[in-house]
Design a protein around this nucleic acid. Structure first.
Lengths: 233, 233
DNA sequence: CCGTATTTGTCCGTATGTATG
DNA sequence: ACATACATACGGACAAATACG
């Protein structure tokens, strides 16, 4: 609430929470990341109204850059716009979420297909190592650590393809799934189950059969879709 | 109807080409589509600098909505931004274009996979009909008509999946490929070649084998990638 | 090092549209 | 149905930072 904007000199203790230390990108881009984080973390819930003035005050900026940030989120599909009504956090329904899972599966399948032509001993060693770690974490029921390891495992596979467009598209789809109200964070259900799938993926890579790899990667996501569909249905 | 925006008074001869008749969406969204069209048509070439003031004057608007439009294009990946330098039409290099082709192939492959579970007699009849038309157009060397028929053929396949996310992602990727300076518009080379691939796609759908269909669709895009890679390489 | 041009961000005024009492 | 309050949409002007010659 009190403003204390960019007045010629003042400053010294204002800016409610605009701690943009290393200013390197535009304010609008900065706000976009902030907002995207709030949306993805659920602090701004799907369907929630986004009031320009309130948000601008919250970030200690004017409405100009904030509107630009919201437009970017709109273009990325995180926000819906109603003319003369305002912007709302996008709410994704069950059907659309299932559709997105399919696209994500196809892209992840492509990752498997590409990787079969890029497998090296180092890569396989790294993957088997990660598999072992996840097995022990699963056995220890350390859900949090398993979750992080699982994330790193997938990230490593994606980036190893060397296809940055693939990685970007995949992340974009994963993010969009966070906009589903009834999203099931159940990585609890599948755990050793999930890791069996991981092992099949790695072994398919080791076999050098690109069709098998593509299908193994594809089905891994499809099974996540199944788990989502059964819980959120 | 005609615009005559909120001008207090002045004005009298502006609005070079701001014919936005049925105003239903925001001015920013309108400008975004205009700019996107200019970019995709090549009138704004990849790498070209985008001057806010000039563009605002060109469209007869103020900087606010124009900047919002540019931010949307930035979020969509059609424009790059350099802080305090300005925005430029994104220029996609050969390597990135090849990457995008792969992602596009995967998504199109998914379309084939999905369609095998949705084939009806009507659908197959429609496809075989389109195949015949394209054959005659190819025999007549009517490139332009073939191009349009080809577009409609692919569009029909995509939308028939019923997966709107898939359609949107596919279109987004196709659009991005237009940002490649050395893009080869050679649909001239493959024509009856291309239609042989189309026939294989339809027949794979008719066979009901989803793996075969997925692969046929996938390879159709991959061959387009090859043709692109050999001409632009 | 200086002058200019451009971007960036802010602020204000007004019109328009929506919601509410 | 009318009046009021509020929010968005757009335009214009200004100040500051930076890039470039």
């Amino acid at each position: 609430m009190h403003d204390e904007r960019t007045m010629p000199e003042d400053d010294g203790g204002g800016e409610p929470q605009a701690d943009r230390t290393a200013v390197e990108d535009s304010l609008a881009s900065h706000l976009e990341r902030q907002l995207e984080h709030l949306v993805l973390s659920g602090e701004l819930a799907p369907g929630e109204r986004l009031n320009e003035i309130h948000l601008a005050a919250r970030f200690g900026t004017s409405r100009g850059p904030l509107r630009e940030a919201l437009r970017m989120l709109h273009a990325k599909g995180f926000v819906t716009t109603v003319r003369n009504r305002g912007m709302y956090v996008r709410a994704i329904g069950r059907e659309e979420a299932l559709e997105i899972y399919d696209v994500r599966a196809a892209i992840f399948g492509l990752a498997g297909r590409i990787l079969t032509d890029k497998v090296t001993d180092d890569l396989l060693e790294h993957l088997y190592l990660a598999l072992g770690e996840m097995d022990t974490l699963a056995a220890a029921r350390d859900f949090d650590a398993y979750y992080r390891a699982n994330l790193g495992f997938h990230e490593f596979l994606l980036t190893s393809t060397g296809n940055s467009s693939l990685v970007a598209q995949y992340h974009s789809l994963v993010d969009k799934l966070h906009l589903c109200r009834a999203r099931s964070l159940v990585q609890a259900g599948g755990l050793s189950v999930s890791n069996r799938e991981h092992r099949e993926m790695v072994e398919s890579l080791a076999s050098g059969d690109k069709f098998r790899a593509q299908e193994a990667f594809f089905r891994h996501v499809e099974r996540a879709k199944m788990r989502f569909g059964s819980t959120a249905g």
